[in-house]
Simulated assay, not measured.
Amino acid sequence: MSPKRTAFGLLGLVVFMVGMSFAAVPLYDLFCRVTGYGGTTAEGRGSDTVLDQMISIRFDASKNRDMAWEFRAPEQRVSSLQIGQTGLAFFEAHNPTDRVIAGQASYNVTPYSAGAYFTKIDCFCFTEQVLQPGQTVQMPVTFYVDPEILNDREARFVQEITLSYTFFEIDIPEGEVSLAPAQPADEEG
């Protein structure tokens, strides 16, 4: 094998590996959404069945260390509801800075066995959030626990589910208009 052919083969391998590294996150996310692996929740419209059995939902809020926002879980940290009953919780985000900041929330459900049965009807995590300087927002999540959880050999024993969100700063989406005042230009003279 010639050195030139070896170099092109290695270059192709590097390009392939870089491409796969960019594809890994979306592919893993798709895998988790389809299988419920890793506590990834389902998205739905609501349950037709509400059971008498109660389950507790605990809420957790955190942020990436580089995220300048303040992010809080609902004041009522634990909510008890019937399996199949629709629940609603409001998380709070505040931008204490003097600049516009965009964020995206990632979420997780524990225990993992319950992830496939925790269904979000609507959630702030489905879209990017943009907060103006000093802005505070209440961000809702509407959810239910699918009654099918009782047919799962592991998940049927779950008494409490924890829904966790972590906010990360992202680039401000194109087309977002900042309401922040323009910075004055430096004046000479």
Results as ranks from 00 to 15, higher is better:
Arg5Glu: 10
Ala102Val: 01
Gly87Pro: 15
Arg65Ile: 12
Leu163Ser: 01
Ala93Leu: 02
Glu188Gly: 14
Ala23Pro: 05
Glu174Cys: 15
Met17Lys: 02
Pro173Gly: 04
Pro181Leu: 12
Ala7Gln: 08
Tyr112Leu: 15
Glu70Ala: 11
Asp60Asn: 10
Gly38Asn: 12
Pro96Val: 05
Phe168Leu: 14
Gly44Trp: 05
Arg33Ser: 10
Leu51Lys: 05
Gly36Gln: 03
Gln135Val: 09
Phe168Asn: 10
Ala42Lys: 10
Gly84Leu: 05
Tyr112Cys: 09
Ala61Leu: 03
Ala24Ser: 13
Phe143Ile: 06
Gly115Glu: 00
Leu81Cys: 05
Asp66Gly: 15
Trp69Asn: 04
Met20Phe: 13
Asp146Ser: 06
Pro3Glu: 05
Val78Asp: 06
Leu27Asp: 04
Val145Met: 03
Ile57Lys: 03
Lys4Gly: 11
Glu75Pro: 12
Phe118Lys: 01
Ile57Ala: 02
Phe31Lys: 08
Ser47Pro: 13
Leu13Ile: 13
Phe71Leu: 07
Cys125Phe: 00
His94Ile: 08
Ile57Gly: 03
Ala93Thr: 04
Val14Gln: 03
Phe90Met: 13
Glu43Met: 11
Thr35Ser: 07
Thr142Gln: 06
Gly12Gln: 01
Met20Glu: 14
Pro74Tyr: 07
Arg45His: 11
Phe22Ile: 11
Gly175Cys: 03
Asp66Cys: 12
Gly87Glu: 03
Phe22Val: 12
Thr166His: 02
Pro3Ser: 14
Ala68Met: 15
Ala116Ile: 00
Phe90Leu: 07
Gly9Thr: 09
Ala182Ile: 15
Arg45Cys: 15
Leu11Asp: 11
Gly175Met: 02
Ala7Ser: 09
Phe167Asp: 05
Arg33Phe: 06
Val25Ser: 13
Val50Trp: 06
Thr86His: 14
Glu92Asn: 12
Gly36Phe: 05
Glu148Phe: 08
Ser56Asn: 09
Ile170Phe: 04
Ala105Tyr: 01
Thr86Met: 15
Pro111Ser: 03
Ala155Asp: 03
Ser178Ile: 07
Arg72Asn: 10
Asp52Val: 02
Val100Arg: 01
Phe143His: 05
Ala7Glu: 10
Ala61Arg: 10
Ala180Arg: 10
Gly134Trp: 00
Gly134Leu: 08
